[in-house]
Design a protein around this nucleic acid. Sequence first.
DNA 1: GCCGTTTTCGGCCCGACTGTTTTCAGTCG
Length: 588
Amino acid sequence: MTNQEIARLFRNVSAAYSIKNSKKYFFQIIAYQKAAEAISMATSELQDLYKEGKMQEIPGIGATIRSRLDELFRKGSVSHFNAVLKGIPEAVFVLMDVPSIGPKKAYKLSHELRLNKSEKAIEDLILMAQNHKIAKIPTFGEQSERDILKALIEYKKGMGKATRMTLPYAGEVAEKILTYLRKSSDIITVVPLGSLRRMMATVGDIDIAAATNTPEKTIKHFVSYPYKERVIEQGLSSASILTSGGVQIDLIAQPPESFGSLLQHFTGSKDHNVHLREYALKKGLSLSEKGIKKSKTSEKIKQYDGEEKFYDVLGMQWIPPEMREDKGEIELAIAHKLPDLVGIKDVKGDLHVHSSFPIEPSHDLGHTNIEKMTILAKKLNYDYIGFAEHNPSISKHSKSQIYALVAKRNDHIEQIKSKIKSVHIIKLLEIDILSSGKLAVDEKCLELLDAAIVGIHSSLSGNKKEMTKRVLAGLSHPKAKILAHPTGRMLNERAGYELDFDQIFDFCKKNNKALEINSWPQRLDLPDNLIKEAVENGVKLAVNTDSHDVSQMSLIKYGVATARRGWATKNDIINTLKHSELMEWLRK
DNA sequence: GCCGTTTTCGGCCCGACTGTTTTCAGTCG
């Protein structure tokens, strides 16, 4: 069973508890939800951790759940779960994926309308809604029937929560509505928050906070957004709309004096806020988006116009948004020991760009010539730029032809070097690791390079053991210094191949290899959780853009943000070194 | 069912919005 399957099972168990008796099982419901969340975010397969006796490493899994998992892995099912899930139609769990339908509504609908075929549950329920069967069910009415029908149709179209946007796309959607909101004179400030501010690789919906002295006016302006499909909800201080592109946008409006509390609240993450509020409670304080009050008394709430003050009142350092995932940052902030995260100004060069030099590559050639890209590197205040075109294709060239092409590119680089002195140019190549583990260029050709970036670009389907062996073989050559886009994931397209990262980290540490943080918006690879593990293991990283066009070199900000999400400091990143130090590291 | 620089027992974040059962349950973030 995969982590995602187990997480789904746990969510179903939680829902079943909530259907059967949500008061009695209140804490079990939370516990299974939390465990499901932790499992779906885990970087190792639970089944592997089980075999290694390391399941307690996952937060939220205690003695009881561990024994349930033990039974699951030994027998393939858990008798206790079967008892809890008994009598609950499968359709319930299908309907629960639809926004606004939770466990209770899903159960009532499935039960009352006898939705037995789970694979047809959505279609069947749409028909029932159209025939006005829902409104007749006690506690439902005509309005909720209409709302459910809308939600079902949108869900079927793939609108709403089903798909997550890439970070830059979300940024554009946000910018468009911010521009609109700023036209309203009663709005003092508007800022995008949530996962966008935390710079998550993908963003589910857009969260916006507005400072205003007239919240109702602001809300009215917001729900009049011309590009909206419909208003999901609208209250006195908050509202949600769905855009015609299927993106949900949530807005909360507060007066400027409590804006700091609102920023903190709406940035999240949920886990971070829950943990922060639990910590505050122990100090006798109760936190909300409105401010901070003493718990258990009716004392007036204290408001904060800035986020720093809010954290300061709790005796903590201000926590960078990228860290707010409840991964230990709260404890460090209390101890005033937060790491000094790498910033965009620390980056001294890009080590992975593809020029248009006709190297007859195995994969995409870049669109911009070496000179133009070098000039932009200078404008970005870089100390150096590393050209890493794909190796010439091995099916179309002989070894000597490959050598000649690389030598020719190097000659061209030398010409540019004599023209542009203010930026160092590094001679790299992005070389395929073939399925045999061998590199796609030979020893003689490798000698032409300062170093090589190696990566997997074909035959992605091997198992974890094979792929790990292949990667380590590829990295073994002394010239191979950076592993390109290590997991091979493409967001919203493919998960990437599986690697044994314990082995990879160990190898990289011992042999001075770096793992790439590829800034390409659909990659952001290494992913943040693995960056954090790499940093903990003392593995060096390289933040690169993989640009195929000069315009893409500014995407470095997304790579840096991902590095920050993995708690990387300047010292963890090789391309924060100045040129002479970097060259020394590449030769090590 | 989890968890611990106030607890191994007794706690467990906080608030907004919606519809329906007019005081609250369900859902969401």
